[in-house]
Write a protein that binds this DNA or RNA. Structure first.
Lengths: 201, 201
DNA sequence: AGTCAACTCCGAGTACGGTCAGTTTTTTCT
DNA sequence: AGAAAAAACTGACCGTACTCGGAGTTGACT
């Protein structure tokens, strides 16, 4: 009387469980205390696994942060992508994609900035890093899609502009000069730059 | 019977000497082996000072890299700034500022990328970090100056565009996807983006 | 059931960036 | 010159991210 198809052996199930426990533990501790105030040992303890085991699931502490934050980022992107469709103005539409991402990133400033740091300077061969880059690519695609509504001719130009917007967002959120700024101030800063970038209509 | 104008006491002279030795040692070791392969201990040994002393002159290893690289960056900027004046076309003029900086940054890819990382994520209160930010500001000013030749009206817009170019340069040089690219490829990548950004003439 | 190879897990150990209490050197004051 | 204060120097020490050799599990095969 088995519940039909259960292709996963005990080994696979255990691995999945452990990964879940690790993700949950890291997420809670990072959110509560900030990534710099949490040791990998604490995460291992909370996930109830050995020190070495932790690094079988995420090769570095940075990967661990990517693992945790990717989920939030992806969700923010999805929300923005949906909102953008309803905005007639190009700049507004772009900002509807941008804003949720910035808000998500600034929930905890240190974690957000460290996340960006890992994204740009981490090892792209690592799986969670690759996932992060994929979300960035999706973000740029979404923005390029909005830009293309206006000028469907220059598709490659839209992609280039989207890439630039990506860079603007990155530095707006990451720069240490902006660390103390409110989320709203950063959104405005980004908006100003994008408005200069967009072709004048 | 003092030797007249010697405003520097022995203490100050010693400090200067030590800083020089540290700078020289760090520069050589970083250039030869790459920042990640060099320990602070090696630098202290080569500079012939104690472990703790090193950190009186640069609070972190990152500051040490900033100290060393700032000099090279400043020089590259100066060269570019002079070259730019002779270029009639705006895009060309901007690229004459950009290119030497990229070339300087890519002399040793890892060091260049780490330098940028420290610039954005390091502690802006530290002196060498502040110096780095100052050079970035000068770079943006130089670029804004070039842009303002074309459209002297929108000064603030020129500054904003210069800031965006700064962001484009940063990510072009820092992104891990670009780590394997040749200097020339990166310059081209940056050029393409800037050409989209500049107001069509 | 028993055997064994492959996979997974573990925590003592390592390396390194950075700190700090104690010492030495320099300057100042009398 | 000598004493006292100030500044600079030092290396033993610490915390932490990450490694590695060996122990423990799992599942395929007979």
């Amino acid at each position: 009387m088995s519940v039909a198809p259960q292709p996963l052996g005990r080994r696979e199930r255990n691995k999945q469980q452990k990964l879940d426990r690790i993700t949950a533990a890291a997420d809670e501790l990072f959110t509560e205390h900030g990534v710099d105030e949490v040791t990998t040992q604490q995460i291992a303890d909370k996930a109830d696994i050995g020190t070495g085991t932790l690094f079988l699931y995420a090769r570095t502490k940075g990967e661990l942060l990517l693992l945790v934050q990717n989920a939030h980022y992806a969700e923010a992107l999805e929300r923005g992508r949906a909102d953008a469709e309803a905005a007639p103005e190009t700049l507004d539409a772009v900002m509807r994609i941008v804003r949720p991402i910035v808000e998500c990133n600034r929930v905890q400033v240190d974690n957000g900035r460290t996340y960006l740091r890992e994204m740009v300077f981490g090892d792209p061969a690592e799986p969670h890093h690759a996932a992060a880059l994929s979300i960035v690519a999706q973000t740029e695609e979404a923005i390029a899609g909005v830009l293309a509504r206006e000028e469907p001719a220059g598709l490659s130009e839209a992609a280039t502009r989207a890439h630039i917007i990506s860079a603007i967002m990155f530095l707006g959120m990451a720069a240490s000069e902006n660390a103390a700024l409110s989320t709203e101030a950063i959104v405005q800063d980004i908006r100003t730059q994008i408005s200069v970038l967009l072709p004048t209509t």
